[in-house]
Amino acid sequence: MSTPRRSPPKRRGRAASLALLAALAGCAAPPAPSPAPPARPPGVATVPNTDETGGVCPVRRSLPPTPTPPRRILERGELVAGVDPSDATMSHWDAQTQRFEGFNIELMLAVASALWPGDDPRARLTFKAVPPGQGAFTMLEKGEIDVVATSLTASCERARRVLFSNDYLDSGQTVLVRRRADGTPEFAGMEQLGGRRVCAAANTTSLAMIAGYRTTGGLRPVPVQAPHPVDCLVMLRQGQVDGVSTDDNILLGFARMAPDTTLVTEAPRPERRSCAHHRDENCTWFTDEPHAFAFHLTEGRELTSFVNHVLAQPRTATVWQQAHDRWLAGHRDRGMPSPGPATTRWPPPDPTPTTPRPAD
């Protein structure tokens, strides 16, 4: 039985930021400073610097794949996915088509097609807007959604709270800055942002990584916390921060939305570079960001294993490449990741323990 398509929930704070961003989009450069500072989204805060890096460690192990669909999902006749309605590359609400579009949406449609072969996958999918980072986990735990399909980094810390699928996209954290009149970035890279205000969303690994970055000169960026990455983009264009730092795939979409911004071009200092999954030498990533779908810690094992099965299918590899060409053109990953070794234990044990990186 088909389920009616639901419109994304209305959020006054987010709508205000998006409206302001749309108004700013017609300008070629940020507005000149005025005596009265521009309004900031509610919840913006400066985060104290810390020597910690947030306890983040990559998770590239998941449960073994299985072709058996979860009975509770089939009986309900619907898969409910939590998405970010303003992520231009991964998942966003398209006003023209009146539906969600993006890289993650394409993969969720592939999962729905595997669950209900022959049916219209969009008729079987319900999308719900969720907060960024770990904010979506509460909805998952309450049973409001079946899967978090945002631009979510898998980490050992988060694996204590949710199950992760296999890694489906390799990315890394970098920085978006304002573009000068000649087209060059106002700041070449993270090394020039010591002492400068750099924004990221609350409850994300990005915020911790900004706080833990020390430049060659010894200065650290000043981390600024906002409710959502798109709030950071608005603040960047208003001159309230000097950079927005999060995953490259998200910032790629922001740069398309705001042509007066650009990604940095200079690599981080050598010991902070994270380029193992980057396809060329022009790498500005300073973290490793394996992207995975998240599921309920105790009730989501069957769905996790089934999604891992879908991700391993040749037809999904075709969907992945077509979606990457459409939504992530210019993203310099090395292609669809191969699944890591399967595990039945969760959180997955680290087979090669490493000494924690000392604070720098």
Rank of each mutant, 00 (worst) to 15 (best):
P4H: 10
P4W: 04
R12K: 13
G13L: 10
S17H: 06
L20K: 14
A23Y: 07
A23M: 13
C27E: 14
C27F: 14
P30R: 11
P33H: 10
P33Y: 12
S34Q: 15
P35G: 10
P37C: 11
T46I: 14
V47C: 08
E52G: 13
C57D: 12
S62P: 00
L63K: 01
T66Q: 11
P67S: 12
P69D: 02
R71W: 06
I73W: 10
E78W: 06
E78N: 06
A81F: 03
V83A: 07
D84V: 11
D84E: 13
A95Q: 13
Q96I: 08
T97N: 08
F100T: 09
G102H: 07
E106A: 11
W116E: 10
G118S: 03
P121K: 04
R122V: 03
P131E: 08
P132D: 09
Q134R: 15
Q134L: 12
A136E: 09
F137C: 03
E144L: 14
D146I: 07
V147T: 12
T153M: 15
A154G: 02
A154W: 09
S155L: 12
R158P: 00
R158Y: 07
S165I: 08
S165C: 12
N166V: 06
L169M: 11
L176D: 00
L176F: 05
V177C: 11
V177H: 02
R179I: 03
A181M: 05
A181I: 05
D182L: 11
G183Q: 06
F187K: 03
Q192C: 08
G195E: 10
V198C: 01
A200H: 01
A201P: 01
A201L: 10
T205E: 13
S206N: 11
I210Y: 02
G212Q: 05
R220E: 03
V224C: 03
A226F: 04
C232K: 10
G239H: 12
G239V: 09
G239D: 10
V241R: 00
V241M: 03
D242R: 02
V244E: 00
A258N: 05
A258R: 08
D260I: 05
T262A: 13
L263T: 05
V264Y: 07
T265D: 07
A267M: 05
R273I: 13
R279C: 13
T284L: 05
W285S: 11
F286D: 08
F286K: 09
D288T: 14
E289V: 11
P290I: 01
A292V: 07
A292G: 03
A294E: 12
F295W: 06
T298Q: 15
G300H: 12
R301V: 05
L303F: 12
L303R: 04
S305A: 15
L311D: 00
Q313K: 00
A317L: 03
Q321L: 13
A323D: 01
H324S: 02
W327I: 03
L328D: 02
A329G: 12
G330R: 04
R332L: 14
M336A: 11
P337T: 09
G340P: 02
P341Q: 15
T343M: 08
W346K: 09
D350G: 00
P351Q: 07
T352R: 13
T354N: 06
T354H: 14
T354D: 09
T354E: 15
R357L: 14
D360G: 15
